[in-house]
């Protein structure tokens, strides 16, 4: 059964240029989805709409069959989805533990350890970690918030191949072992091929590959 549904959503930029037209999709828990497409095709826009960062001009996004506007986008972001960004978006004056604790609903230390951060690293200022480590902290924050959906926007975009591989595995594990619905927007073919289902966004429409 779909945990998240995208129903006929349309979106245009402020200048009137349409970017998404009548998008329909369903996402299930325990699966990893990849959304690929050319630059400017609207991947990040679609992810933002699913993540409740913006509102479509037409159509609706349903979480467990309820329109996310029903309880408000803030509620949706806090309880249904967790976002992971290419630029990690960590709070620079906090340690990994503190970053992960921001919206945590569970103990963050085991999660950080499972993601490969040492005892010393979890207490260091987050800006003093490598890019890969910072992305792991971002994933830890998403996992600690215990939301059913994880949305990742180019999560390996700034990482080298080896590190990216590690991050892809973590995301896959999150879907398959933790029963999360993981939706990844990516340019990376390697990452896309690891997904259970791949969507391609082209000319404002979404196609299953």
């Amino acid at each position: 059964m779909a945990i998240l549904e995208v129903n006929e959503i349309q979106y245009a930029y402020k200048n009137g240029q349409p970017v998404l037209s009548d998008i329909n999709a369903e996402f299930e828990a325990g699966k990893m989805y990849a959304i690929i497409g050319a630059s400017g095709s609207g991947k990040t826009t679609l992810l933002s709409l699913i993540g409740g960062l913006d509102i479509p001009q037409k159509g609706a996004i349903l979480f467990e069959r309820e329109n996310i506007l029903q309880r408000g986008l803030e509620y949706h972001r806090r309880n249904h989805v967790s976002l992971i960004f290419q630029s990690y978006n960590l709070i620079d004056y906090m340690t990994p533990i503190e970053n992960a604790e921001l919206t945590a609903k569970q103990n963050v230390l085991p999660i950080l350890e499972r993601l490969g951060l040492t005892d010393e690293e979890v207490k260091r200022n987050v800006m003093k970690l490598s890019g890969g480590q910072q992305q792991r902290v971002a994933i830890a924050r998403a996992l600690a918030s215990d939301t059913p959906v994880i949305l990742a926007d180019e999560p390996t975009g700034n990482l080298d191949e080896d590190t990216a591989g590690g991050i892809i595995n973590v995301l896959k594990e999150s879907a398959h072992e933790l029963n999360k619905c993981v939706i990844v927007v990516t340019h990376s073919n390697e990452l896309a091929t690891q997904a259970d289902i791949i969507f391609q966004l082209r000319y404002g429409n979404l196609y299953t590959i």
């Binding site: 993540g51 960062l53 803030e74 509620y75 949706h76 972001r77 806090r78 309880n79 967790s82 976002l83 978006n89 960590l90 709070i91 620079d92 921001l102 919206t103 924050r141 918030s145």
Partner: peptide, 13 residues
């Protein structure tokens, strides 16, 4: 502004 955006994306009111 970055920090504010992150907080908002995390669903902090």
């Amino acid at each position: 502004i970055h920090e504010t955006g992150v907080f908002l994306s995390l669903g902090i009111a």
